[in-house]
Write a protein that binds this DNA or RNA. Structure first.
Lengths: 156, 156
DNA sequence: CTTCGATATTTTATGTTTGAAATGTAATCG
DNA sequence: CGATTACATTTCAAACATAAAATATCGAAG
């Protein structure tokens, strides 16, 4: 155990620093997205997330599946979906054969509005991450895959 | 223009994918941290953040400085600090010479409790990111620096 | 001294978030 | 069949978050 080498900074510290940066980068972008969604589409990030999940499943999703995909509590999804329903962007119907479940999906109006938001959204991301080339972005993506996994390991 | 190469996916798509991964990784880790803070320290992430900021400034911080550092609205900080004060972890005192301002800082009890939480916290991060070596973590950190900056460019 | 614009903080209204408890339904076991 | 156990969702209370309005103070210009 001699300490001849200049001590390659402890892995623990390096990981902590990575985490802080990860958090900072994500929060910065999230704040910007939230602001733009509010300004340009009179919407919010949670609503966008719900609509994004639903748009990937035109046939609809159950409430619990929705909260699972979004990784938020199911009590939470109830409120967000409620407001979306109130605005006619989303509809809920009973599931045939299981009276406990509800199937949630976008209405045509909701799908149209989401398509528009999604296009703008992709443009925003492109701008916000314009500091990276496509190759850099892909390299980073690959590395982050491991991060997400090692984080999930504990949970799953 | 033959397509020998796998067609470098549009930069826009690559960046969008990166963003989604960034978000997923961050949220996964955040959820795990929140859960552990609650279980092991009967606390929350926002409270931890406030205490972390205060522990770096033993002399105290003004409310507005605090909300600035944490990048949350100042109305928000009021509530969190209020609860911390109620539990005796934080104290507020008037600023001499400016009756508008309040100086917030950790009490000895708060500082002790935070020191303990911070140590555990670092261990958690180390575990959650154990999929990466110190070198990988540092490489990623450096790349993310640019991400944060390009995101901030719009804001600052 | 007074007025006016800037600053520091809190309050208010609304929405998001969580974990836990409650409700209702399904499925299985004895 | 009746009791338990598991599941899908909602309700609830408390915390957190934002933007905007309100309150109070400061500093400087007239």
């Amino acid at each position: 155990m001699n300490q001849a080498r200049p001590a390659p900074v402890s892995a623990s510290k390096a990981r902590l620093r990575l985490w802080l940066r990860l958090l900072k980068a994500t929060r910065t972008i999230e704040a910007e997205l939230r602001e733009r969604l509010r300004r340009d589409h009179a919407s919010t990030l949670p609503r966008f997330d719900v609509m994004a999940a639903l748009s990937r499943r035109p046939e609809g999703l159950r409430m619990s599946a929705l909260s699972g995909v979004l990784r938020v509590s199911n009590g939470n999804v109830t409120g967000i979906v409620e407001r979306l329903v109130a605005e006619g962007l989303v509809e809920r119907r009973a599931v045939e054969g299981d009276r406990r479940a509800m199937l949630v999906r976008l209405t045509p109006v909701g799908a149209a509005q989401f398509a528009e938001m999604a296009a703008t959204h992709e443009g925003w991301i492109d701008t916000l991450l314009s500091g990276l080339t496509a190759e850099e972005a892909e390299a980073l993506s690959r590395r982050l895959e491991d991060v997400a996994q090692s984080g999930a390991k504990e949970t799953e």
